[in-house]
Design a binder for these strands. Structure first.
Lengths: 195, 195
DNA sequence: GCGTCGATGTATCGAGCCGATACATCCAGA
DNA sequence: TCTGGATGTATCGGCTCGATACATCGACGC
């Protein structure tokens, strides 16, 4: 995916480990539960990502001295380092245009609890305009098409457009809620220091 | 994607060229219009696919003798060969489990006009059970999660589940329509020889 | 005429994702 | 005791995508 996508996985891993140390298998399950229908990470990307994060010093292996280990089974539990926490804050704050793409948005959203209100709003609005752009381009492309499309293709289009429109409406509601909340208590920081 | 996904692009290309010869740029535009919100193919996959299809003899370059070419601009127009048509029929008929994955379903659906009624039903039902499986696994994973999730994560889950449930309902309607049509006129072949 | 901008057009590359797979342990039930 | 399924770490090949390069064309202003 040309570089930009690894960031999403990094965010997902760092965000998960921020709450509690985990090992690979558990991390994957947790991530896939957290993201539900939106995304499913595979080992083929997860393990390389963990190695990379380890090399960057953003995560570290936890000492197996803890009684946490059930049998004598080999298990590598990772925890966030101080640098990792900084990096996480950075990723959460500097959410750019990539944050409103399909693959990234869900991950960012899943960690909104740790995100500043201002950034939350920026991501939601960015996502919305991204979807609206797409709606426009598909609609104009459709209008420009001379030949008549068969009923199946039309039905596919209709359903596709409808579900995106629905997501836009969902975003509108979320944005309205965010706005209302920030008007009510502008200084309220949902995050501050959780856990 | 482990091998199986190139098939989808092949199907998309062969299916498009079945209707009219096209060159790369136009093919991509057409495909992205056809699939609307579902998929967008990039040149990075389209051109290698065209080359592969050419090598397999499933498509051929059309003679530039035709007046179709506007200027003297280099343009490579591809058309379906007889073998290509056979292959297309094969792909349309032998739609297996891969046809009901996210990336493939839309493409198969977009060419339902050329697909036998029996296969259409199989694909729709396969897609439905695929989605229901996913709903189940997410719901049980969610139920098994001890710790309470924050409101953002819950909202993400809710929205994700809802949109998949909506797609299931959509499929139910389509399946019912297909069933009704095949009861009414079981021998009716929508395809036979189009164009 | 001339520059420039956007659409049209073909093509490739590196980064990186994913499904499949291999290998191993643990536990519950037949 | 054996078998199957969950747990657990790890890698590989095939493939996709965004970015990019390069080039031509028509339209526009000046």
């Amino acid at each position: 995916m040309a570089g930009g996508q690894r960031r999403v996985l990094e965010l997902a891993v760092l965000g998960s480990l921020h709450e509690t140390p985990l090992h690979g298998y558990e991390l994957r399950k947790r991530l896939n539960t957290l993201l539900g229908m939106f995304r499913a990470f595979s080992y083929g990307s997860l393990y390389p990502c963990l190695r990379s994060l380890l090399e960057q010093g953003l995560i570290a292996e936890e000492q197996p001295a803890q009684a946490t280990i059930v049998g004598g089974r080999s298990k590598i539990v990772y925890k966030l380092t101080a640098e990792g926490k900084e990096r996480l804050q950075e990723l959460l704050t500097q959410a750019g245009p990539s944050a409103w793409e399909d693959e990234s948005f869900g991950v960012h959203f899943a960690f909104f609890r740790h995100t500043e209100a201002e950034v939350r709003l920026r991501i939601l609005e960015g996502r919305r305009s991204r979807l609206e752009e797409r709606l426009d381009s598909v609609r104009t492309a459709l209008a420009r098409t001379r030949e008549r499309l068969d009923s199946y293709t039309l039905e596919l289009q209709r359903h596709g457009l409808e579900s995106v429109e629905r997501e836009v409406r969902w975003l509108n509601e979320l944005i309205a809620t965010e706005r209302r909340a920030s008007e009510r208590g502008p200084a309220t920081d949902t995050t501050s220091s959780d856990e």
